[in-house]
Design a binder for these strands. Structure first.
Length: 639
RNA sequence: GCCCUUGUAGCUCAGCUGGUAGAGCAAUUGAUUUGUAAUCAAUAGGUCCGCGGUUCGAAUCCGUGCGGGGGCACCA
């Protein structure tokens, strides 16, 4: 005679054992119709799970994340069922729920094509229409292994073998024959899945996520509670595609890639101007924050990389170059060894600390070909790198300085939504635990002082010290990991860095690695997507285009453009033989922030008529006023 | 690196089951001199990614290499 406590605190008494369906029915008719899954004392259960004792129960519908998750999970199962019906001999492996949907990994000789996806989708629909019932059974371990082996599902048998012996093995039947090993819970019947799903893509995936294993075929699907949500999701994807920096970079003539050098950027004039603006902006900021900018060689003797430990640990990702004298040099994948060399010049005292060395250093890393992705993952990129040499006591304050600098810069570029990821000591590491204690505590203190949200990634720090990563959220809700601070207790010692302390003894400094954007290339990719190519005025690659209304006003337009350039704003004149409408369309599509129209009116009053991007409003302004106003705007962020 | 997919004019893309290429935009030339998102017309433009094979004949079929895309793995 269980008493069921509901989330609102109300109790329901039952005279006999009861399941979720019956509880839902008792609460309301509509809930019984919409109920998908329940939690019993916090544990998710199938609705037909029989409750014998007093407990608290919560019933979930598709409005709850728990309900949606089960819809997706059932969709994955029904997809596997459809696949096995259509393509006998295909083995199933795993099929979890992921963000926005689900996938299932299959083993089959022939590749699934996009036509197959349509067929599978259709079969899924049919199974859903039949509204077949779900049934849960608990099997004996040995029986389960031999059963799955017998029916040729060797992956399933392997999974069962890896499940701890004390765990219950549940088998879910969808209909009378198709069944799968699964932890559950699942919907009562296939009809509850609804039709708001779509198979999106097929790809390869390693068995158990290990590249040493064979490759399976993964079919991805997206699944939602309603058709409306599905459509919204597909729309979001479409919007993201429109912002793709590779597409916009080509359209806006910012950069290109070519096969002679995969993963490296050919910056065009406009893209490079954007690049330079960001660097100049950061120079001003860093100068104010007490950094000293240096420049170190791109190519350094292999011996140095051996000493620093890079050769052994990251050698596979390094480009090398052999000179005619048979020496091997490595093209730098990081700037740190070079910066330590700079630090090592001359005797350093505690009075020199903290010493902040920065460099816009171009590094090369041989990334696996499959990892390359536009500007977001390249083989040669420019780091806004710095290394801060300091004493242990200075770790917290220096980390805090860096954090403030990073947040300030992100804000100027339009990113205000930032979270931190703090990672502490990994299993394999160098250095004394006492030093780690101190480094971790100092860094964590700095993290807390920011008052930003942070997550702790246990054991994910670098082998040489703990780290913080800065994750920013863009205009369409995507997260990008950009800046980082890493406390290094290892490298300075390896490369013989030292300073003379107050007491006259030599000490090894702590080194903080830090990057603001991380990679300029990558950050520009993020900026393009965040702004959909419509950059804020001050970083816009081409800020103004002057358009004379007819040939008669070309001279005036040229004069205006020249004046604009004089105050540091970029400008071009459009002398093409096209009409005004054509030119406005042309430059609007090119995302020029300001179009300046010049005709008789403007010549007579020594003015310009401004048309801002995405605005039909026209504003006439004396040229003098325009120059003053916009040159101030242009410099605003540099102060 | 692995699986799938893809590579045609400057750009976006057609080109069915093999018969040596086409559109729109851009470019060039001419006419139009334009007041806020495409004026009209003409012209020119291609090792159909490279290499090899099948075939009387290959952009098309097969093999291979390189590049791109989607994932997986990787991301110090």
């Amino acid at each position: 005679m269980p008493t069921i406590t509901l989330p609102d605190g109300k109790n329901l008494n039952f005279s006999k054992d009861v399941n979720g369906l019956e509880i839902a029915k008792k609460i309301s008719k509509s809930l019984s119709k919409h109920a998908l899954v329940m939690s019993v004392d916090g544990e998710l259960k199938d609705l037909y799970f029989t409750i014998k004792n007093d407990c608290s129960v919560k019933i979930f519908t598709s409005k709850d994340p728990e309900g949606l998750e089960v819809i997706r999970h059932d969709a994955a199962h029904i997809m596997a069922m459809a696949v096995q019906e259509l393509y006998p001999g295909t083995q199933v492996t795993i099929g979890p729920v992921i963000e926005n949907g689900f996938y299932y990994d299959f083993s089959r000789k022939e590749a699934f094509t996009s036509d197959d996806l349509i067929k599978i989708e259709k079969r899924m629909s049919e199974i859903i229409d039949k509204d077949i019932k779900t049934k849960r059974e608990v099997w004996d371990r040995e029986k389960a292994i031999s059963h799955f082996n017998k029916i040729g599902e060797k992956y399933k048998a392997e999974i069962i073998e890896s499940i701890p012996k004390n765990e219950e093995l549940s088998i879910y039947y969808h209909g009378d024959t198709w069944h799968d090993l699964c932890r559950g819970p699942h919907l009562v019947s296939s009809g509850k899945i609804g039709k708001a799903f779509k198979l999106t893509k097929v790809s390869g995936a390693y068995w158990r996520g290990d590249s040493k294993n064979e490759m399976l075929q993964r079919i991805y699907g997206t699944g939602w509670a309603s058709q409306k949500e599905l459509e919204e999701y597909l729309k979001r994807i479409e919007e993201a595609e429109k912002r793709d920096h590779r597409k916009l970079g080509k359209e806006m003539d910012l950069f290109h890639f070519r096969e002679e050098s995969p993963g490296t950027v050919f910056w065009h004039e406009k893209g490079w101007s954007l690049f330079q603006k960001l660097i100049n902006y950061m120079r001003a900021k860093q100068d104010a924050a007490g950094y000293k900018e240096v420049n170190t060689p791109e190519v350094l003797d292999r011996l140095l990389w051996e000493k620093s430990g890079h050769w052994e640990k990251y050698g596979e990702n390094m480009y090398t170059s052999q000179t005619p004298d048979e020496k091997v040099f490595a093209i730098k994948p990081m700037n740190c060894p070079g910066h330590i060399q700079v630090f090592n010049q001359g005797l350093k005292s505690y009075r020199d600390l903290p010493l902040r060395i920065t460099e816009f250093g171009k590094v090369h890393r041989y990334e696996p070909s499959g990892a390359l992705h536009g500007l977001l993952r390249v083989r040669a990129f420019t780091q806004d790198d710095a290394h801060i040499f300091c004493s242990e006591d200075q770790i917290t304050s220096e980390c805090l300085n860096v954090t403030n600098l990073i947040l300030d810069i992100y804000k100027d570029l339009g990113f205000e939504n930032v979270i931190l990821k703090y990672a502490d000591r990994p299993e394999i590491r160098v250095g004394d635990d006492k030093v780690w204690d101190k480094a971790e505590a100092s860094l964590l203190e700095a993290v807390k002082a920011t008052k930003l949200k942070y997550t702790i990634n246990k054991g994910e720090g670098a082998f040489y010290g703990p780290k913080v990563e800065f994750v920013l959220r863009d205009a369409i809700g995507r997260d990008w990991q950009c800046g980082t601070i890493q406390v290094d207790l290892n490298l300075p010692g390896r490369l013989n860095a030292s300073y003379v302390d107050k007491d006259g003894t030599k000490k090894v400094p702590v080194m903080l690695h830090r990057a603001l954007f991380g990679s300029l290339e990558r950050f520009i990719g993020i900026l393009i997507e965040n702004y959909a190519g419509k950059f804020p005025f001050w970083i816009s690659p081409l800020q103004t285009v002057v358009i004379p209304i007819s040939e008669d006003f070309e001279e005036y337009a040229l004069k205006v453009s020249k004046e604009i350039k004089k105050v540091g704003i970029s400008s071009e004149v459009d002398l093409k033989k096209h009409n005004l409408n054509y030119k406005i369309r042309d430059h609007s599509l090119a995302k020029i922030p300001l179009l300046l129209i010049c005709g008789k009116k403007e010549v007579d009053s020594n003015s310009v008529t401004i048309r801002k991007l995405d605005s039909k409003k026209q504003e006439n302004m004396e040229l003098k006023t325009f120059l003053k106003k916009y040159s101030a705007l242009n410099k605003a962020s540099l102060n």
